[in-house]
């Protein structure tokens, strides 16, 4: 495990707000030279702390009015391999995230759709037809906040 100092933390906060900033701009905001900023950024990347940044898009403006989280329980564990389910579910374009979890459900999926009828189409044609799928629970996303976390 690695230790971050105050400057690393400030750098991470700045990048969570806007990862398109250049090392020069970040350095100016934090009172660091461009080479010093560059070295810190490289260290954070090399240590695996910073992954590939993500584009933040206005889903509704792009025609995706609904996001739904699905809890999926497999019906036939043992008979259908987890790999079959995982391969099929990750290939569905409307499925944005797939997480394997322990608890009430086996998988947690995030699905985008244009509207509720479009979501119903994805659910019936793509999700319910997955190999081994059993009980499915749906929760429609109303609001979402990403927090900076303990840095």
């Amino acid at each position: 495990m690695i230790d971050l100092d105050q400057t690393d933390r400030a750098l991470l906060h700045a990048l969570i707000d806007d990862a398109s900033q250049s090392a020069g701009a970040l350095g100016r905001a934090l009172g660091l030279s461009q080479p010093a900023t560059w070295r810190r950024l490289r260290r954070l990347r090399d240590l695996g702390v910073l992954g590939t940044p993500r584009l933040v898009l206005d889903h509704a403006a792009l025609g995706f009015g609904v996001s739904v989280f699905l809890g999926v329980k497999l019906a036939t564990k043992g008979r259908v391999s987890l790999e079959d389910f995982e391969r099929a579910v990750t290939a569905i374009p409307e499925v944005q995230t797939v997480e394997h979890v322990l608890g009430l459900y086996d998988y947690r999926l995030r699905v985008v759709a244009r509207d509720i009828p479009d979501f119903e189409r994805v659910l019936r044609r793509r999700i319910m037809t997955l190999p081994g799928v059993g009980n499915v629970e749906a929760n429609v996303l109303l609001s979402e906040e990403r927090r900076p976390g303990p840095i």
Binding site: L4, A19, V49, G51, P53, R54, V56, L57, D58
Partner: peptide, 16 residues
């Protein structure tokens, strides 16, 4: 406002 920006992804296991 369609493109809101770029957000860094922190990989938490790397921070313990």
């Amino acid at each position: 406002g369609v493109l809101r920006g770029l957000r860094a992804q922190v990989h938490w296991p790397a921070l313990g």
